[in-house]
Design a protein around this nucleic acid. Structure first.
Lengths: 392, 392
DNA sequence: CACACAGTTAGTTAACATTACTAACAAAGA
DNA sequence: TCTTTGTTAGTAATGTTAACTAACTGTGTG
């Protein structure tokens, strides 16, 4: 039942210390051995030894001298972000969006492809493999320097077991798809829901940076949320946390589709469209329902009323989330990014009236890149520095 | 910024290993050195050394021989639950309820006192000190073997800073009351909201045992919840998590008291009483509003309607919590424990209709002892074995 | 039935490996 | 000359493996 550790866990301490040193370097960008020692309670000789090993391993580099502070000049160290690379992939509708990134999360190459619909699970895996090959070629990164791939997709995923129980856009159903892909690509793979990937992206690079309790609220085809509490992704006991589309907001009866939640039946984009069909029939491909609704609301009283109703009920949802979770920030995404300043202000006012601790309300800031960035970071998170230091 | 560690952190490893050993003993009740070694990846000699030290420190005891498994009989070790003691105190209305417990959380003595109202903050502290003295005398435990005291109270607490911003029953307001009490008692003190203490109690000894995602829903004078996610108490960014009385359930307008939440305005006990005042005027001291309402509902159509409405809105609250958090268990407490089987069944049916992952629905099982048990455990949690092993 | 002896399990001792520390020193600069 | 940075050398702490003692089970034999 216990993890096997052959050399005794003095090795563990070393690993921890190495990680701590690495963390300091990452944190400061450039730093000397002496300064690391000051920051970490580790002695200078010890830091020196650990740093030397990590230089051997390619994780750190000496990048020149710093300014003297009255004595010998320090040798500055830098994290070698190019030591390894990570791949990310997102299935969004019928397109596959891929990228390869360095360990900073910076994209080195990107690749996009439209998939034939309906998707066939096996050819989709081949598409993934082909995309990866191309990214490797384009970026010039040798395959053995790839740490893994993060894959985000619309649908229902069980990250723990690496299975996908429902995903029309990829054609993956049931079965431990993660292992299958890992075997095909010869790489560790992480599979997760697209909203979770976007949440992670915004958390590490977008609107959520610097916060420890973050709720990412998404309104699109459905309504969902990604939840990060005390700096940790919270998934719930059956990976069903954040299914806020099932909140009891709006008319309880009159719910045609039993599988859909009450909230999302009425206030997801399809739900709103249904309510607006009297005046919003002429919607061209690719345009935003909310933008259109806002436009109509300027002349049409009915549209104005609907828009206010939508805002109000979205605000109810936020108030419930806030009451339960007291997050520092609520990130608005999906179609909610099209709400204008007026609308956000109105929602904010309501919240101040209803709940005592109103968090920051911010629109998602990464746009369509959020998912990919999250996918890349899901790998970085799962393989923290630890793994790199394992190259025994 | 860094924790000071004088001897280098090889000492840290030892502590960790010692804790691991201790954990095994606690977990198994009785266990031999050899078995600990098998469970912990630590070698037998190492376990022996650590165990010997802990026997010296009084934390472990040899309690006799176990059965032979074909060779020498093992010497069984046991955790010495009596090595230290913990005190707990709960202010519930105008009574102060205190207990002293061993490290298993078993009460060794208990003490109750009615406080004069309105409470004066300073005399309350003296009451606390007097109660503690009495408990120590009664249980025969020397003061220096006390690890600390957990204090739970109705009101608004900031556990992080140890302050109480609102608490009529104790008369404590603002000011870092925790330090004041610590100074007076000469003991580490933990202050927390009573609902949080009860949540912890149910989590470690009551209905929540064995679960990692637990929501404890309390309906009384107000409506609140305690939240444990992935085995950790979740408090929110400003310690306002679980303020579910502010959910947007029930009539939004017509809320007389601006400080109270929409949900609790209508569906806390005072809110229900307000709605029931037509037929529930004759309520004697100490009886349950819900029990009375259930009784009336058998003859009175109006009462029946109100009861159904209350159940329904409580269920809305639960559905929202479940949608967001997907807990494994929802513990019903406060006046909700008086809901009869019929009512629970009805609520469960609604939930199955509304949300996909319905958790266990269970009534709180510890009754009025929950808070005290939680208070005691809050200390155990804050001073894990770590502290004991610090006696360098 | 007594008893020797092999086999097994528990716990300890001894020698060794790892890792971090302190102290002292060399290098480089103000 | 005094500082600051980085390294070398010796030491202390802690855990490991290997080997040993202790204690018990079970079995075959006189």
């Amino acid at each position: 039942m216990q993890a096997p550790k052959k050399t005794g866990n003095s090795k563990l301490v070393k690993k921890l210390n190495k990680e701590e040193v690495l963390q300091q370097v990452v944190l400061h960008g450039q730093i000397s051995r002496a300064d690391i020692s000051k920051q970490t309670h580790l002695s200078r000789p010890c830091v020196s030894a650990l740093v030397d090993e990590m230089i051997q391993e390619g994780l750190l580099q000496e990048v020149g001298m710093g300014d003297s502070k009255g004595g010998r000049k320090p040798i500055l160290l830098e994290y070698n972000y190019q030591a390894y690379a990570i791949a990310g992939a997102i299935f969004e509708g019928s397109t596959l969006d891929m990228a390869i990134a360095d360990m900073k999360g910076e994209f080195l190459a990107r690749y996009r492809k439209r998939l034939a619909q309906p998707a066939n699970g096996e050819t989709v895996i081949e598409d993934l493999a082909a995309g990866l090959d191309r990214l490797l070629r384009e970026s010039g990164i040798p395959r053995e320097r790839l740490l893994g791939m993060g894959v985000g997709l619309q649908g229902v995923t069980q990250r723990g077991s690496g299975t996908v129980s429902f995903s029309p856009s990829t054609g993956w159903m049931g079965s431990p798809i993660q292992q299958t892909i890992e075997a095909r690509l010869g790489l560790p793979v992480i599979i997760d829901n697209d909203v979770n990937m976007m949440t992670l992206g915004e958390y590490v690079r977008g609107a959520g940076v610097g916060h420890t309790n973050v709720v990412y609220m998404y309104v699109g085809t459905g309504i969902g949320a990604g939840i990060i509490l005390d700096g940790q992704f919270y998934r719930g006991s059956r990976e069903a946390a954040g299914e806020i589309g099932f909140m009891m907001i709006g008319p309880v009866h009159n719910r045609p589709n039993g599988a859909s939640g009450v909230f999302e039946t009425h206030y997801s984009i399809p739900g709103i469209q249904e309510q607006a069909k009297g005046f919003l029939s002429d919607l061209q491909e690719g345009s935003s329902v909310i933008e259109e609704l806002i436009r109509h609301a300027k002349q049409n009283a009915e549209a104005k009323e609907l828009l206010a109703d939508v805002y109000r009920h979205w605000a109810y949802g936020m108030a419930n989330i806030i009451s339960i979770l007291n997050p520092e920030i609520l990130i608005l995404s999906g179609e909610m990014v099209h709400v204008d300043g007026e609308g956000v202000k109105q929602i904010h006012e309501w919240l101040r009236e209803w709940v005592p601790e109103v968090p920051n309300l911010e629109k998602a800031s990464l746009g369509e890149r959020a998912g990919l960035i999250g996918a890349v970071h899901s790998v970085l998170e799962a393989f923290p520095f630890t793994r790199l230091l394992d190259k025994e």
